[in-house]
Amino acid sequence: MRATTVLLLASGMLLSAVPGLAQSVESLPGYFAIEDLGVFADGELEVDIDLRGAMAKIVAAAAANEDPQFSAAMEKIQRIRVQVGSVAGRDASGVRAAIDGAVKELEGSGWYRTVTVRDEEEAVYVLALESGGLLRGLSVLVDDGEEEVVLVNIAGDMDPEVIGSLISNIDQLEGLREGIEEGLAQP
C-alpha cells in the first residue's frame, strides 16, 4: 500500500510538473485546501489527486466524442483535489472535529450544504459555492466512522445542471450496480 501511495504521489508531482499545466488557482473562490485540514498523518494517505485546469481541459477535449456530458463538466474545471485515507486506530473525535470545523469554515465563507448525513457512525457533507448562476466549488467531506476519510474539492466555473446531471447519472448507475450485486448475492 505504501509503495502504491508513493507511486500515486510521484505521478501527481510529475503531472503537475509538466510545463504549462501547473497554475496558481488557490485564489479561486471555490478552491478549498483539503490538505490544510491535517486529517491524515504520514502513511495514512491512500489516494492523493491534484488535477489542474489545463489537464482538465485536455481531458474534456479527449472525452468530447465519447462522453459529451463528462466533457462539458470538465471544460470549466480549474482544479480537482481528492484525498482518501485510512485513519483506523486514530482518535475518532479528533478527525470528526476537523471535518466539522471545515464545514463551519466553508459555511462562513458562503458555502452551503447540499447533503448532510450525520449520526454516531458516520458524517457525510457535500457543500457547494454558487455565484452568478454558476457552481464555483464543490466539496465533499466524509468520515465513515470506521476507518476511511474522503476529502474532495472541485473548483471552477461549472454549470450546475451539467454537474448535477453527471452526478445523478453516476448515482443511478451506482444504484443499479449495487442492486445487481445484492441480487446476485442472494442465495
Binding site: I80, V115, V117
Partner: peptide, 20 residues
C-alpha cells in the same frame, strides 16, 4: 490517468449524494 482521476472525484460526490 487524469480522466480516471476526474471520474473518481465525481463518483465520490455521487457516492456522498447516494448515501444521503
Amino acid at each position: 490517468h487524469a480522466t480516471a482521476e476526474a471520474r473518481f472525484a465525481f463518483s465520490l460526490v455521487a457516492d456522498a449524494t447516494a448515501t444521503a
